[in-house]
Structure formats: C-alpha cells, structure tokens
Design a protein around this nucleic acid. Structure first.
Lengths: 206, 206, 206, 206
DNA sequence: CATGAATGAGTGTTCATTCAT
DNA sequence: TATGAATGAACACTCATTCAT
C-alpha cells in the first residue's frame, strides 16, 4: 500500500528531524520519545531507525544544523568588520540574532547543554565537537585583539570575554526562558538591551 | 507489623519532602521517582500518595520551599540596606548567592521553567504563583526608588530592571549551564563578574 | 476490582514458575518471554517483577527446586547402601529416575546448560552453585571408594566416573531428546538399558 | 548502481548458505539473523527471500548439508569394513567424529531437536525427513547382521542398537554440553571413552 | 535479480498510579 | 495510617517479513 501521509514522501528524514526538534522544544530533552515522533509524523517507530541509528544520533542530528549555523554566522559577522571593537559589536549582534531566531538551538547549546546526550555523543560520534568552548575561544581572541590595539585596556582577555558573553547571554536566555510569561522581553527589547549592556561593559573595560 | 523506621513516625510528610528534595537537588527533576523516595524513607510507595496527591504536587512542594527561600533572602538583602543603590547591589548579591547555592532551584525558576511540571502545576494548583514576575516587580520598584532618589537618572524603571536582571542572570545561568565544562566559571568568578557587570550597568544608568 | 483469575490468588509466584517452566520446556530458553508467561497466567507482565527481580532470577528460580531435588535424591540413594558397588548402582538408578521424572530439569542441568543464563547468574546471585561439577565430584569419590575396596580395579577414578556418567547420561538424554519420536525409548526401556549399560561398564572396570 | 560485491554474483544462494552456516556454527540457532547474513554477504536482507522463502527454510537448508554429511560419513565408515563387528566399531567412531567436529549440527540433530524449527519444518517442508530414525534403522540392520553372523548373540537388534547408540551418544553429548565447564571432556577423552564403552557393550552383547 | 522503504509484533524493563484491605 | 498486589502505559530497540519498484 502506498504511503499517503500528510507530508511529502520525499523527506521522511527531515520530517523526523522537524518533529524531534518540535518535541524537544516543547517537552525538553527527556520529553521526546521515538514513538511520539513516529506517531506525530504518521510512521511507525521502526522507521526512524532507518534514518537514525539511535536516539542519540537523532538528538545529535537535531543539534548539528544549528551548531553549524551558529559558528558560521558569528565568523561572518566578525570578518565583515576590521576594527576589533566593531568586530566585538558585530559578533554580539550576530549572537543575539542567532538566539532570537534559533531559540531551540540556543537552548541546546547554552541554556541546558547537560540535558543532552551530547557529551556522551561527542565521544561516540566521530568528529563531533561541542561549539561552546570553541566560540568562547574565538571571543577571547577577539578581545585580545582589541586589547592589543589599545581599544580596550590591557587585562585578562578570558575574564573580559566571559563578562561580555555572560551579559549578552543573560539578555538572550532570559528572553528565551521567560519570553512567553513577561511582556518585557520582546525581540526588539532584547536587541536594544543587548546593545546597551554590551556598550556598558565595553566602556567599563576601556 | 510495627513500623520501626529510622525516622520518627511523626512527620512522614516532611521526610518525604526532605528525601525528594535531596534526590531532586542531586539528580534533577527527571532523576527522582516515587519509588526511590519511598525506599529511601522506608515507607511504601503508596504512602506518598497519602500526603501528596501526585508526583506533580510533590514536585511543586519541593520547589515551594526553594521559592520561599529565594523571595525571603532577596527581601532580607534589600531591607538590610537603606540607600536604594545599596539595596540594588545587595539584592544582586543575594540573587547570585541563591543561584550558586541552589542551582537546581534556580534552574527550575529561571533557566527552564517551561519544561517543568511547575508551569503546568501553576495552572492546576490553586493559589500557586510563579515567583519570577513577583521578584521582577520587586526589582522594578527598587529601581524606581533609586530613580526617585536621583541616584539613577529618570527613565523606564522596567527597562532598567530588565537590564540589571538580564546581566546578573547571564552570569549566574552561564555558570550553572556550563560550569562543569569551562573552567572560567567558578563561584568566585561568578561573584566578581556579577559585581563588575552590575556596576557597569548602574554606571550606564546613572 | 478483585482478581478472579483461573488460579487461586494464593500463589501467583508458583503460577509464574510453573508457566515459565512449561514455556521453557516447550520453546527452549530463548523461547520464553516475560509477557508470554504473564499472558498465560492472566496477569500483567509487570506483576512478574513483583515476584522476580529479573528474567535471570526467574530462570534461576525455575532451576533451583530441581537442583536441590537432584542433589538430595542422589545423596539419599548413596547413603541407603554401604557397599561401594551397590552405592554406585543405587546412585545410577536415582540419576535415571530423576531424569525420567524431571526431564525439564535434567535438560537444564545436563543437556543444554549453556542455553541458560545460569553461568552468568551464578556470578550474580549469591550462593548460586552449578550442580554438575558437584555431583561429578561425588561420583568420583564413590568410584574411588570402590577402587579402594578392591571391588573395582585400581585406575583413574575420574576417568571411570566420566565413563559411568556418560553411559547413563546417554540413555537418559536420548530418551528425553527423542522419546517422543521413536517408540523404543519408554521409561522402562530406559531403566533397563541404564542397568545393562552400567553393569557392562562396571564389569569392564573390574 | 552496479553490484560490486566481494563474491561472484553467480551463486548468491550458496553465499547465503555459507554465511548462515558460519553464523550458525558460531553462535547457534538463535544467534543468526537475516540481517546479519545479508550484511555479511553484501546484499540486502530482502534478497535472501529470493532464495529462501523463510528463515525456517534457510535454517533447514543449513542443517541439510550437515545431515547429508552425517549420513554419508556413517555410510562410508560402514562400507569401509566388511566384518559386521568392525562395521559397528567404525560407525561408532564416525559418529563420534561427526559430533566432535560438528557440535552444533549434532546439537540440532540429537540433543535438542524439538526446540528447533526443524521439527516444525519437517512437517511443513515437503519431503523433509528427520535423520535420526533413518540412522537408527541403519544401526539396527548393522546389529542384525552382527547377530546373524554370530558375532553378537541373538536377541532384539533394536534393543542392542539403542544400547550402543545411547552409550556413544552419552559420551558425545556430555562433551558437547559440558565440555567447556569440566576439563575431563577433551576430544581425546571423548574418543577413548567412546571406544571403551562401545567395547564394554559389545562384550556384554556377545 | 535486487532493493529501499516500511511495518507489526515482540523483547525486557521502569514508572506513576490505583484499589481493596 | 499504611500497605501489598496489581496494572496500563510507556520506553528504546530488534527482528522477520512485505511490497512496490
């Protein structure tokens, strides 16, 4: 019998991914099961195993796209500027935009990474790398450059980077976590605050 | 058979709560089961249902204490000072300390409130209130006071409060989320950064 | 709702055991599942876990009774006689009777012990001991005694014991394995042959 | 896409059989799955169904070869001798060698034939015949011949055959079942004992 | 001849929950 | 007040098998 599901037969794999993503977003990491996904997309649970070897691998796949996006959009933002300070600002904006447009992935990456099997997965899946430390390192070197150029006063670049990251993360994550519940966390509020807060810190670091 | 448990038969309810809290603080929300609790306190699983209608309600009760703690320690911090600016600083410090010493409660309250049964519970359990809006309101009035006193320049107190909260939350939540994975997020780092960042913002708001 | 199953509510545990035994006998070690047992006795699969922690433990329990029986009936047979040769004959008869009356347990113990998790179980369940080596040792010492008394000629008692055991085992196991398919393996045939074969060997060992 | 498997496309069927046999000899009956076979030979699981209607039928085919081997090596052993007594001895030796070198086929044939799909298959597959009765019949006629020649004293040849078979089977099967667990059952022990025991019986039957 | 896609039935196991006592 | 007995639903995962191509 021909499969006449609600979605084009073409892309079962992406249907799985989409639904897995949705369920994860809704119920958290422990709240999504293979069966739920299968039911939701109108396939049998077994079918999922044709596309993903494992629940772990499915989880990982859910993250992967977002991870790639994140890294490249930050890098792009940085390379679009030449002045170190402007680079820092651009990266900050890119970071915020990523969080606003990919709240789920942001969540996975920075808000509750532990919930993910990612740690274990990284050891199992060849080539898997956690993006946070990586991007932190990148931020540190940006700050270093700004210090070298004299735009920021000399100091511990790791500390300064942590400060900037924390601040921007605070704005973004609070919006993601509480956005639905308090009306003071609309996207534009987030952008504005991120800018304000970044400038405050850069000023303090000058 | 006579009950010869290790704890006075008097307060089974609090024994349940204590053990549930312990398990919760240790393993997180998904890491405690009714049976584990029952086994640990030497009662049957059924008994728990004599004191709590539901796992949800037990969970809620577990959180409640933490919520109360949070509210009262912030209030205490505020009332220990008289100057509005000092109050803001004190509340910030208290907020940070709460996050550091009750990471899981902080997690429930601010990092992933939706994922929690608590969110659903708040709608189910009569009189249950989420603490965030409440404490946000408190913060807003603190900021208002500081603006009224001239310590901060006049402006939208909600915006300023959101800014401060975001900044401090960023420091705390990043530490909780990534603390185990990057070594730049030790408790003392967190305290220092929270102070630095708060001062930067207060300066910017002056 | 009161359980009104087909078996007295009294002994669910033994009902499980009985059914497990039956299924094992019928389908072999891999052919019995917790759910099959549950269905057969009219209980839910979960219920089994109230009586046995594990499939392994259930398997082990299936064996246990038979193991105990086996050891004690052989010992009884031996101690009912004083003459070493008569002891050997008596033990042989007891062995055969055990096989004929507990074909399943004989099967588990001697025909296909590997199929059982027993090996693994013995390491997990405290005090679990495999009966075969034990009974082999007992047989060896019986043969030794017969050699010492001059009833059998001096030689390697292990070899002689292995010979006797093999012979009797052959008669019994062939009856169990093929009994249903060839009509020459009725219980009385087995008894007679076991005697004949034992005497042949004892004669050869004299 | 062109098939570029490691084996000539010629005889997929025999490739399947070979691999199935290998898996069967290695892991036993429950240790081989259609997918494992398919993966191993570089074909899809579906392909197997082009050559074998069923797992049962594949299993049967796997056994068939062993069965044929068994029959022919016993026949060869018999026909290599002319004296009926020597024929009996030769057949016994061949029987032992088969058991030692094909323990899993021996297992299927004589140790636990019922547990096997083979039993059911024999009823399902047209023309399928169980080898035991067949070889038992052959043994009976060998014994008859020995009785006729006067080498064995007159009597029931079926009984004598059953006796011999039981004895040799005991040696072989005990070795297969317990070989790994008691060190007194090495191949050479088996051969020696089979000989000893056969002679004892033949003597008793003389 | 061969396959990719898909599935239904089944595996052992855990959990929150109920109910009669 | 407390429990032992029991359960239904769910979990991740495997397997033999089918069917349209």
């Amino acid at each position: 019998m021909v499969k006449t599901g609600t979605l084009g037969t073409k892309d079962v794999r992406s249907a799985i991914l989409t639904e897995a993503t949705r369920l994860f977003e809704e119920n958290g990491a422990d709240g999504f099961s293979m069966r739920q996904i299968a039911d939701a997309i109108g396939y049998s649970a077994t079918t999922i195993y044709l596309y993903f070897t494992d629940k772990n691998h499915l989880m990982y796949a859910v993250c992967e796209a977002g991870f790639a996006d994140f890294g490249s959009s930050l890098a792009a933002a940085a390379s679009a500027e030449t002045d170190p300070m402007e680079q820092l600002r651009a990266v900050g904006r890119a970071y915020v935009e990523f969080g606003l447009s990919h709240p789920l992935h942001y969540d996975v990456m920075f808000i509750r990474p532990q919930a993910w099997a990612i740690g274990r997965l990284a050891n199992e899946i060849a080539g898997a790398e956690r993006p946070e430390p990586e991007s932190f390192v990148a931020l540190v070197s940006l700050v270093s450059a700004a210090m070298d150029s004299g735009a920021l006063r000399a100091g511990d670049p790791r500390e300064a980077a942590a400060l900037i990251w924390s601040a921007v993360h605070g704005v973004v994550s609070l919006a993601i976590s509480l956005g639905d519940q308090i009306d003071a966390f609309e996207p534009d509020d987030v952008r504005r605050r991120a800018m304000t807060i970044t400038e405050s810190i850069l000023t303090a670091l000058r």
